[in-house]
Design a protein around this nucleic acid. Sequence first.
RNA 1: GUCCCCUUCGUCUAGCGGUUAGGACACCGGGUUUUCAUCUCGGCAACAGGGGUUCGAUCCCCCUAGGGGACGCCA
Length: 455
Amino acid sequence: MRTRFAPSPTGHLHIGGARTAIFAWLHAKAQKGKFLIRFEDTDKERSKQEFVNSILSSLSWLGIEADEEPLFQSSRQTKHKEIALDLLNKGLAYSCNVSPERLEEVRKIQQQNKQQPRYDGFSRDLNLPHEEGNVIRFKMPLEGETSFEDKILKKISINNKELDDFIIIRSDGSPTYNFCAAVDDIEMEITTVIRGDDHITNTLKQINIFNALEADIPEYAHLPMVLSPEGKRLSKREGALDINEYKKMGYLKEAMINYLIKLGWTYKEQEIFSEEELIKYFDIQNVNSSAAKFSQKLLDFYNNYYLKESDLNSLYAYIENNFSLSDKFIQNPKKIEIIDLLRVSSNNIIQIIEELTFFHDDPELTEELLTLIKIDKDLLEKFKFELEEVNFNDKLLIGVFLDNFLSKNNLKFPVLGKPLRLILTGKPKAPSITDLLFLLGKKNCLERIEKFLKI
RNA sequence: GUCCCCUUCGUCUAGCGGUUAGGACACCGGGUUUUCAUCUCGGCAACAGGGGUUCGAUCCCCCUAGGGGACGCCA
């Protein structure tokens, strides 16, 4: 079994494309088949090397590697033309000299008559000699229907009258997508095509190319679209980000894959899957047939989960190697414990990094912050005095001290805890006070309390 | 407009003729932590509408509505 992911390098890889790639890759792994990559770069104007690199780096971040060298469609132009000419000679395609202007006119009239705008077959039986400047169109069957059994959507069919004679060779001599895709799928011996369901009409066209070329038709699985939270098509305007951006924001690839695969696929009532489990359980036929909306919150849930579950030292190394940490933090002997504490309540690594600034930078005592801090300064003075004697080497001792201090002074925890947290971190939301005192260290704690008392 | 596809809690979904319609996220509440958070327990919440078929429809068929997609000398 051989499948492929075939992006056009005209933009970055976003959520939708990444999901398609993951499904195809997983299907290959689950079936012990081959996963291939083909760049559909037949649009010379819009295809850019920059995007090839970007897509490849996104895929490699996700751990998706092709089993053979990626194929560039443009490198096969000569072959494509040759096959198109062959079709022309066999009478399965024909030369056409209808101008784009006339085409547009025809479409306008068809619209007005409430018909589907399409090429009307004007040159189909004219037998024009193929001259430079003409296009070559594929001869669609005029009767019957084209249908296939989709792995996900089940039977899909269309009346052949709805399909028009589409162009396979442009007037400049270059071959077009629908033609190249079919030819290359044959060449690459693709047995399973997995792509978005926006390709359904292309599939119907391509099946006819397969037939004309007397090739076996691959099996198809059309993935329902991923929609924006508003239910619109995912696009830059609708907030579709380059996958590389998620990496930069500190999403883990495991989270990304788990989220994306669960967007449409289920196995029993399991929510969390290791790569091994995915390969073991994945079955393309269990993919849901309806479109799904992208949910940042669910992605965050998965990321938080993997942040908490991943090996602490590896996570730290990953953060240090891929994100910019301040020298002060890197020199902090308790840095790993700090990360361990913060990851529990963070959705991504950037959030962790933003949170950890207070460990080495004193919080700014702004007006706003000061109004939030409500504490008796004499009490705080006393607390500071006693804190100086505490052994900070042991977190447990700090906890004991806190307990004693509270009960000795007959205080409820929040009376001291709330203002203390604000003074030490500048934030109302932070880890537990004991952890905070321990990880901040005695010197920092005393200094910050002192700083506040002096105001 | 024409054709194709889709329609279960707010969101992702399970269900494949008989279920108290299940799970997860989110949200809300209780408990733990003399702490906001974490953790834990619990709660809220859905079969788009109308016709059939059937003893019985979330499930099968038809219609309507809504959503998405395609309609390029883009891919």
